[in-house]
Every structure is written in C-alpha cells, then in structure tokens.
Computed example of a mutant assay.
Amino acid sequence: MHGQSAAPARAAQRAPTVSCVIPAFNENENLRLLLPGLEAILRSQSSAWEIIVVDDGSTDGTADLMAAWVRAGGFRYLQLSRNFGKEAALSAGLNAAEGDVAICLDADLQHPPALIPQMLERWRAGADMVCAVRASRDDESRIKRVGASLLYRILGSGNRIRIIADAGDFRLMDRTVVAALLRLPERTRFMKGLYAWVGFTTESIEYVPPERLHGPSRFSFLRLVTFAVDGITAFSTLPLRVLSLCGLVVALLAFMYGTYLIIEYLFVGNPVSGWTTIVTAMLFLSGVHLLGLGVIGAYISRIFDEVKQRPLYLLRNDIGSGLDTTAQDSDAEC
C-alpha cells in the first residue's frame, strides 16, 4: 500500500536526491576506477547527489585518494577508527546519507553502477526497495554454492520473513526504509536479514557481477563461515530446535535400550556387557553435549555483545560536504 500510494508522487519527482554509500577496505585501486563512472551516472540521473565512501580501517592509499575527491564537491569521506566490518561501515554510511534514496554498492567494481537508472525507475514506479540479485553463482566454487544454499534454507525455516536468496548489499532504498533500518538497535548486524525484516515493497533486478579487477576478495572461507553463523544466530532458532529434537531422540533410544537390557536379563538371563556399551554411549553423549554447548554458546555470545551496548562504530574523520555541495551547485545553475 505504501508503494502504491507513493508511486504518483515519485513519478512526478523526476530527479530525486541520491546518496550512494560505498564501504571500502583497502580498495584504493578499485575506487580510482569506480568513482568517475559513478559520478557521471549520478549527474545524469539526479540534480543533487552525494557519494559517501566509508573507509573501514584501510591501510592503503584510500585516505589520500579521497582527500582529493572531497575537494571536488558531492563527495563525503568517513574514516572509521579501525576495521569494524562491512556491516558496521554500511550502517555508518546510511546514518550519514541524506538523499531521498540511498544506494549501497561495493567498491570492488562487482556491483555495476549502470543498474542505477533501472533502480530509480523501479523506485519511481512505487518500490520502496530495489535489490540486485545475482543471475547465477556458476563463477563460485561448489562448496560456496552449497554453503549459500544451505544458509538461505536455514534462515527461511520457520521464519516469518523471507530473505531473498543471492541478493547482497547492492540495492536502492527509499528514505523511509533507511530510517527504519537506523532504528534497529542490534550491535552485531546481519544486513541481509535486516533488509528483509523491515519489510516494505521490494523488487529485484537480476545482474551478472563482473570480475574483480584489483586485489583479492576480502572474504576468506573463515570470514564467510563467521558471516553465516552471525546470520543464523540473528535470524533463526533452527539449531536450538534441532538440538532439542536430538536430545529427545537420544533420550528415547536410551530408554528403549535400557528397557531391552532389563527384559533380556530378567527373561533370558544374559549378563549385561557393560564396559563396551557404557564407553560407547559416554563418547557419543559427550560429543552431543559439546556440540550443544557450542551452539548455545554462539547464541550467548550474541547476547554478550548486545548487552555491552558499545557503539557500532567510531569515526576518526568525516571530510566533505556531500549532498549540500551538489544541491548548492544545482541552485546556482538554475
């Protein structure tokens, strides 16, 4: 309903103010290629725009590069005090964004800015959020494809929200969506889940990500596993339900086996062969207990992070005027 009622007003608003949020960690070479092309597209689509680069603790020449770009106007550079992670960097950028719409994209050139005009058209038609969805994962390893499929199955099990599979952070969001995201108090943020949780009218556009031109991917296998654990513990209780089911099954099997041994001893007279049975059972139950403690510990660690109430990120520098500059330039041209 919100999207339908907003459609006529957005159709009349041909040039919304646009904020582009780009989290970056050691992406100096890729930013040199991304920023000029992104600026050209925004100039053709909006009368007032800003590009917000959030430096998530880079150690390359990102700071020097952005010091030159912010002097040109329309650019804002947020430098975090250390590496807080991509989710925190995105939150910092969205908190600084002032446009009618906010567009998040990565700095590695795998999120093509050429899709921005299509996203804006969908927004004018009434969509509150437009996300880019990978057309396929054929370029990834089989392990990563299977892992991603399993993750989305777990997140979708018994959950009232639907997380769009293969949709990343490359998306356009209306101002109301950004405001809703900023109201969420989580410290450990799984943005894919939060995008889905806030709801609103969402549409998707398929795309094929181009190859990364400079530098290796920042997401190692261990980081991907950590990312998956964060998502599961934030948006699914399936592991806890599985543990409860395992406990019930083990208890029933133990009761049935114990009953069998008692009946055999009373009616057949066979002595209970204790040592092998007991050791096997103890080793099995010890493994189940340790696995259960690990799963419960993952959930408790999330509680521990939340109750400390530490800031999601800390800023070292905030340079540039962003949207104010391009808005003033537009007024001067008029």
Rank of each mutant, 00 (worst) to 15 (best):
L285T: 13
N26F: 09
A196Q: 02
P113I: 02
R223K: 12
S321D: 14
G322I: 01
V279P: 13
R76A: 11
L150K: 04
T325G: 10
Y265E: 15
D166L: 11
A97Y: 01
Y260D: 14
E333H: 07
N95H: 08
V54P: 01
H2C: 04
D55S: 07
F304C: 08
G193S: 04
V279D: 04
I116K: 00
P117D: 03
G322A: 03
M282Y: 05
L42I: 08
L312V: 15
T277R: 13
Q79K: 13
A196P: 02
L315G: 05
A92E: 05
P8F: 03
R175H: 08
I163Y: 11
R43W: 12
R142M: 13
D138A: 13
L240R: 14
P216N: 12
L33M: 04
V146L: 10
R189A: 03
N30D: 10
F227N: 06
F25A: 04
A9R: 05
M256L: 11
M173C: 09
F221P: 12
T233V: 15
E29M: 13
F219A: 06
T59V: 11
W69G: 01
S44H: 07
L194N: 02
E203N: 01
E206D: 12
P36Y: 04
G247T: 08
F219V: 10
H111I: 02
L31F: 02
D64R: 14
R187S: 12
R183T: 14
L42K: 02
I205D: 00
S286M: 05
G274T: 10
L312N: 10
Q309K: 15
T325Q: 08
L293C: 09
I278L: 13
Q309F: 02
D139S: 13
L33V: 05
R316H: 12
P271Q: 13
Y299A: 08
F190V: 00
V18Q: 00
V146F: 02
P36I: 05
D139L: 12
T226I: 15
L224K: 14
A97K: 04
C131G: 15
F170E: 01
I41E: 13
V279R: 11
G99I: 00
W275I: 07
A48V: 06
L42V: 11
G193W: 01
G37T: 06
L78C: 04
T280V: 04
R160C: 09
A148E: 11
R187F: 10
E39L: 03
G73F: 01
G274I: 15
I164F: 09
T277D: 14
D64E: 15
R241P: 08
F284Y: 09
A298S: 09
I262P: 12
